[in-house]
Write a protein that binds this DNA or RNA. Sequence first.
DNA 1: CTGGATCCATGATGATACTG
DNA 2: CAGTATCATCATGGATCCAG
Lengths: 218, 218
Amino acid sequence: MTRNVRTYDHFCLVSRALERVGDRWTLLVIRDLLTGPNRFSDLADRLGGITPKTLSQRLRELEDAGLVTVDREPGRREVRYRLTPAGTDLAPVVDALGKWGLRHAWRRPRPGEPLHAEHVLRAVTQAAELAGADHRPTRWHFHVDGEDWLVVGDGRGWSLTAGAPTTPVDVTITAATGALAAFLFARSESDVDITGDAGPVRQFRRMADTVAAAVEPA
Amino acid sequence: MTRNVRTYDHFCLVSRALERVGDRWTLLVIRDLLTGPNRFSDLADRLGGITPKTLSQRLRELEDAGLVTVDREPGRREVRYRLTPAGTDLAPVVDALGKWGLRHAWRRPRPGEPLHAEHVLRAVTQAAELAGADHRPTRWHFHVDGEDWLVVGDGRGWSLTAGAPTTPVDVTITAATGALAAFLFARSESDVDITGDAGPVRQFRRMADTVAAAVEPA
DNA sequence: CTGGATCCATGATGATACTG
DNA sequence: CAGTATCATCATGGATCCAG
């Protein structure tokens, strides 16, 4: 049972929000649902280190709070967890944390730290937001370890979605996850293929420069 | 000792950030330092419900992480905790949480829930951000329970600072904390005095309408 | 009086193993 | 695949106490 009913009881919007999503692991579960519905095992994989007990507890709390719905297709064992609109609205919180993390909480990965394409792509999205505001509408297509991702800037903000784009893109980046991470965080160009017109490619590289500048002191 | 060294060990900017500020109470301590340096007892008062042990532990962790500095004036017993620039940079995270809380985590106060002017004013700031983007530069002066506060929108974002303004303002609002909270969250005009030119006053009321619209379903 | 520290009880989390 | 069960450990809440 142990329904987590801990409250702060402040008359404050921030503490109200943290009463819902302030528990350990909760915002990371949200993070890994922001790109689309996921199964229990996929979440457990991305959330390396979470125990099944904690994950199922968090998912139930999020469902009770109306931030997650559970799709159970009858006849199948497969279960898909999906964000509700209220859950999706947490994207700005996750992005604000990522942008702060880029500037102030970077550290080298520990040995054996798992590396997920989705997390690296989310870092790209957050770096693009941080790199600032000359946004014309922009579409970057990533082909990473056989999966397709689309990073879109609409002039006001940037977002990440899973799947191949269905309309033209400005830049296409092909790389393995590790090579892409090295490109972003260590200015390595090895095994990263970037194609597109000169202007958009320059904009993409400027995003990477933002990452390098933020990370270099560390 | 119990230095909290819990990590997530994901290669991800969000989890890096949460390793620093994801513990219970931590972001609320930041929240209550964003308007300026504060003493231990002032923090304990605003953070109603925190135990001294947890507060001193959080402050030490934040100091170790470089987000807070401790001003100990020699000869005086007074200690002031102050955010570093890295700590101040968490303002967007706190604001994103508050904006989400306004839309999705509002609930009526519990009986006896303490009410602090600073928290209500921060809700004003977050509601102004949510109300959107017709921002001309705007300055609202609040006189609440004998204290002065300034809410400034610079066209890109809004901020809250403690103290009386030293240059002209667009709107001046005078009210007790409770009356201001009732104005915001329950459309009560009792004992709230609003002065200023018609345009800026209309803009201020539009912010309050945003709050009412977000809160009414609940 | 401010600025904490100490002790204990309880609740939340981690590790590991196991099951429909 | 999608969890549950059990046990150990750690973090937090509540109360009290203390030093400058």
